[in-house]
Design a protein around this nucleic acid. Structure first.
Lengths: 136, 136
DNA sequence: ATTTCTGCAAATCATTTGCAAGTAT
DNA sequence: ATACTTGCAAATGATTTGCAGAAAT
């Protein structure tokens, strides 16, 4: 939905069929997939695609700032395609699913100077935990 | 400081020399260690202690709710011994140091019903990112 | 005595890397 | 043509597991 592909092309990202499929799988998704899930979905369209290639592409998208890595307590990192929109995460404690949620207030404002210990704080992210509808 | 050992004994946690050392390493520390760091410190006092045993003990402390697992973007989880006090984390984007900070407001209150997507939300944790005094 | 730990080594899971062959520019 | 990508398989890092012997209750 957010035309990730077009942005990538404009930025001169070398396009190959596997890179396109990875970008397509991520684009506009509101749930956040693990590298393995991205690989599985990509492989539906392009059966020969290898896991290493998916990891490469994801790593580049992260460096480009088009995608963000989210690591909640589980083991596998998840990839968040909505890097440009400020938002927080809702995580299911049982199955690990992550959804984006939108802030009602800026948590940065809630950290008083004396609780900053000399840090130059530039961003705050909130992780809400609970059970998703299917796990509850 | 926080008498983790005493609490564990009261709760009937079977005590062995290795479990004691793990608890001692964690107790009252304000920095949050990885499993491997815990193992290294424990091994200074008890050279034969194995990594698997450290993982076992950490896992049990987490299940008991005495310790919390924190995973900030790196790949190794860190263990936070201050599970009983509500607090958030201040992470240095350069060196990875984590400090505890105390909330000025409860972020749970800032997530409106229509942004919960059917989840039963039970907790919220905030990660503040920036540069620590030494890295700035 | 019984139940629960410990250490070891091997197993597993997530991710990375080296390199020859393939492909976009 | 050239430089960058891919796929494979093997390497790595983090964590888990199976099991026989050791230790706590």
């Amino acid at each position: 939905m957010s035309d990730l592909l077009e942005r990538l092309r404009e930025r001169g990202w070398r396009m190959t069929s596997q890179r396109r499929v990875v970008a397509e799988v991520l684009d506009g998704d509101h749930v956040h997939l693990t590298a393995d899930e991205v690989h599985a979905r990509a492989a539906q369209r392009l059966p020969e695609i290898s896991r290493a290639t998916v990891y490469n592409a994801l790593g580049e998208l992260v460096s480009l700032g088009e995608v963000t890595e989210v690591s909640t307590d589980g083991r596998a990192r998840r990839y968040d395609p909505n890097a440009h929109l400020p938002h927080h995460h809702l995580v299911c404690s049982r199955c690990g699913t992550i959804r984006d949620v939108h802030p009602a207030a800026d948590p940065l404002a809630d950290l008083p100077e004396e609780e900053r210990f000399g840090f130059t704080v530039s961003e705050a992210e909130v992780t809400y935990r609970g059970l998703c509808p299917s796990c509850a």
